[in-house]
């Protein structure tokens, strides 16, 4: 546990907790009108005492919009990663633990899916289903599944070959109990680490999708959407892009730092 007590661990955990707190609390604390109130006289005004992060093209306060955008971004990224783990976990375990024909077929499919860039896959699915919040989750979730299934399969395979699994089999443990008692607990650290890193990628993916107009749609507010809206005003009001961009970057940085430290603590084999 000492790994968390490094600068990296503390900063990473701090950022992650801060973003989570904002995502959960901002919608309760900040009245909706603070973020939607348009002040046409203060359109595209720079950071000042009354608007500390400045305002957007409709004169809305960027500070409050970024705070409220956190909820959407975190919700989408979290649900998408959860979805890919929920699909990828059984696939990966079955493939890695049982091996054989199932493994061959599943992994051939997964390898092929990995030829599709995740962002392209997510964009295509989102475009085809019609972009909205739910479909963005589905799109990112599906796009990330092959990657997670592959990782989980590799871990399950590694654990299935450990002597303690053989010892348990020799002691009469059934396949089901083997997975529950031995496989799952031993692949959990890797899943937690990969889940954290995937969360960072999912935040980026959501921002990318929304930036291209194929993710979250107004009136939902997300960071990617804010950056998209800023594109036409880059020259006159660069802060409209930089503020939500920095929010994405800091969140992803925090997740990556947290993931690195988690990996050092939980999964020393793959430590970088």
């Amino acid at each position: 546990m000492r790994g968390f007590l490094t600068a990296k661990g503390l900063i990473g955990a701090g950022i992650v907790m801060l973003v989570l707190a904002i995502a959960l609390l901002a919608p309760l604390v900040i009245p909706d009108r603070m973020a939607t109130a348009m002040d046409m006289r203060a359109r595209l005004s720079g950071p000042s005492l009354s608007h500390i992060f400045g305002t957007d093209q409709l004169g809305r306060d960027l500070f409050f919009r970024v705070m409220l955008g956190a909820q959407t971004s975190v919700l989408i990224a979290g649900s998408a990663v959860l979805m890919s783990i929920v699909i990828g976990l059984p696939l990966g375990i079955v493939s890695g633990y049982y091996g054989g024909v199932i493994d061959n077929v599943l992994m051939r499919l997964v390898d092929t899916l990995l030829s599709f860039p995740a962002l392209l896959l997510a964009l295509t699915i989102s475009a085809v289903l019609g972009p909205n919040l739910t479909n963005t989750i589905i799109a990112i979730g599906i796009a990330f599944t092959p990657f997670l299934a592959r990782i989980i399969r590799g871990e399950a395979l590694r654990v299935a070959q450990m002597p303690y699994v053989e010892a348990a089999r020799a002691a009469g443990t059934t396949d089901f109990m083997m997975i529950v008692r031995h496989i799952l607990p031993n692949i959990m650290p890797a899943i937690i680490v990969q889940g954290t890193i995937s969360l960072a990628f999912a935040i980026l993916a959501e921002a990318g999708l929304s930036f291209l107009g194929l993710g979250t749609q107004p009136p939902d507010a997300s960071w990617g959407l804010m950056i998209q809206a800023s594109r036409d005003y880059l020259d006159v009001a660069p802060w409209t892009a930089l503020v939500p961009g920095a929010a994405v970057a800091i969140t992803v940085l925090g997740l990556n730092m947290f993931g690195d430290v988690l990996r050092d603590v939980l999964d020393p084999r793959t430590a970088t």
Partner: peptide, 20 residues
């Protein structure tokens, strides 16, 4: 039948589940 025959493995570090 495996009740009657058990096994001890070489690597004492790998033959026990680290999370149990």
């Amino acid at each position: 039948l495996r009740r009657d025959m058990q096994m001890i493995f070489q690597d004492p570090f790998a033959s026990l589940n680290p999370y149990m």
